[in-house]
Amino acid sequence: MILTGPIETACVIAVVAISVAALLNLYRLAVGPDVLDRILALDTLVVNAIALIVVIGVWYGTAVYFEAALLFAMVGFLTTVAFCKYLLRGNVIE
């Protein structure tokens, strides 16, 4: 892909920065000292994935990626709540 303007350059820089942040989150997910740190790293990894989807949507100039990011955000929120509830009570559904 040929960079033609400042938006494309900013998107490339943003993709690189988000990718570095995702790699650091993967490290914390693998090495985290306890389960709560791993859940927090997983939630942050979901936020990084949402940011990456949105940046790619801006780069390509289409709105389909924004809908995918919204769906991914809802699923990521529900999984984080389910993990935390499971750790606190031992079950998800009462």
Rank of each mutant, 00 (worst) to 15 (best):
A30W: 15
L78C: 06
I53L: 03
V54Y: 04
D34I: 10
P6N: 06
I53T: 11
L71P: 01
V54K: 08
I93W: 04
S19V: 07
G90D: 09
A10M: 00
S19K: 03
L23I: 15
L45Q: 12
V64D: 13
N91W: 07
A73R: 03
M74I: 15
L88K: 15
N48W: 11
A73D: 10
F66I: 00
T79S: 13
L26C: 05
V46K: 00
L70Y: 01
A22F: 02
T79R: 07
Y86L: 11
F83I: 13
F72N: 07
V15S: 07
L24H: 11
D37W: 12
A41V: 05
V12W: 01
A51T: 08
Y65N: 05
T80D: 07
R28K: 14
P6R: 03
C84I: 14
Y65T: 03
V47H: 04
D37N: 15
V58F: 06
V64L: 12
V35H: 12
A22I: 05
L88C: 08
I93K: 14
L3V: 14
A51E: 07
F83E: 06
G90I: 09
V81C: 06
N25T: 15
L87G: 06
F72E: 04
R89M: 11
V12K: 02
V35G: 09
T9Q: 02
T80I: 08
T9M: 06
A21M: 14
E67T: 14
I93G: 01
